[in-house]
Simulated scan of single mutants.
Amino acid sequence: QLLGNQDHIKAEIEKLKQTYDSQQQKLEEKMIAMGKELQEAKTAIRDTRHKLAEQSAVLLASQSQLQEVEAENSRLQLRLKELNEEYRSRLAQYVRDVADYMDSKPSNRAGPGKAPAVHAAMKRFVDSMLEEIRASYRAREEQLAGAARGYRKRMKSLVKKHENLLIAYSMQREQIRSLGSSDMDSGPAELHFAVTDPELLTNTTQELNRLRESKAKLEMQLRDLQK
């Protein structure tokens, strides 16, 4: 009877040992799998951070390009103002030249027979001066108009590219936030990089900026609650 009990105890111990070994193996396999997942998560975080940094750099470069084109537009506006002032100045000079020309022609002293010739000469002088002013103004106006068209086309392309970059940047931020790590910096809010110049905004971009502003406020409130 005693030997039978010992055999039974040995069998139970062996059974427990096998169960323990099996559970230990499963635990080790689970730990290895978790370690692998953790390493993959760290790699994903590192890659996402790298992509976010790249997106931030590209957005900053895009902002710089937009500012350069805006400055170019300001120069065009200034040049147009200068052209208008120059046109007025030349017209004023033209009036003075006509007055000087009239003063230099003694039409009254030359007798009535000379008057038609004097008037014809004056008309040619006036027509020539006006045509010169018009031609000069047209040439410069066309030059500025061409530059303005190029500016608008370039600006439209840059704004579209910038909006696409903002969307990609937003997706990267959301990917980082979805990882749930509180110590990870997801970068500045999209509003920080948004185009705000009223002349460049369409109805769609204005609405997007309002949504970005609301989102930025909600993110700040969420951070305050998590402190």
Rank of each mutant, 00 (worst) to 15 (best):
S89C: 05
H50V: 07
A92F: 12
E12C: 15
V58R: 03
E68T: 11
L91Y: 03
E85S: 13
L16E: 04
D103T: 03
R88T: 09
K123L: 02
T48Q: 03
K81M: 08
G35R: 00
D21Y: 15
S104D: 00
L52I: 06
E40F: 13
E28D: 14
D97E: 02
E86T: 13
P116F: 02
Q6G: 01
T48Y: 09
R124W: 02
A57S: 06
L27E: 01
E82N: 12
M122L: 14
A44V: 08
V58W: 00
L27V: 09
K42R: 03
R124G: 01
V58T: 09
L27S: 08
D47Q: 05
N5Y: 15
P112W: 12
K51S: 14
G111V: 10
S74R: 10
Q77F: 12
V95T: 05
S107P: 10
N5L: 12
A53Y: 06
A92M: 10
V95D: 01
P116A: 00
R46C: 07
I13G: 03
E82G: 00
D100A: 09
P112T: 14
R109C: 09
L66T: 07
M102E: 03
N5D: 04
A92S: 14
D47M: 15
A57T: 14
S107G: 06
D103G: 04
R79P: 04
Y87F: 07
R109K: 09
V69I: 08
N73T: 14
L76Y: 08
K51E: 06
E72L: 15
A99Y: 14
S128Q: 02
K105D: 02
D100H: 10
S104H: 01
A61T: 02
G111T: 07
E85T: 09
R75M: 13
Q93A: 14
D47V: 13
E68Y: 04
Y20T: 01
Q39I: 09
L27G: 05
E86V: 12
Q39C: 06
T43K: 12
L91S: 06
E29H: 11
A11R: 06
L83V: 02
L80K: 14
Y101D: 05
P106M: 01
Q67D: 13
Y94G: 07
S22Q: 08
L80M: 09
I13Q: 09
K10F: 11
T43H: 01
I32D: 05
K36Q: 07
Q23Y: 12
T19Q: 09
V126M: 07
Q67E: 15
A110M: 04
E86S: 13
I45A: 07
K51W: 11
R46M: 12
Y94V: 05
K36V: 07
K123P: 02
S74A: 15
R124M: 06
Q39S: 13
A71D: 09
K123N: 04
L16C: 02
R79W: 08
M31P: 10
Q25N: 15
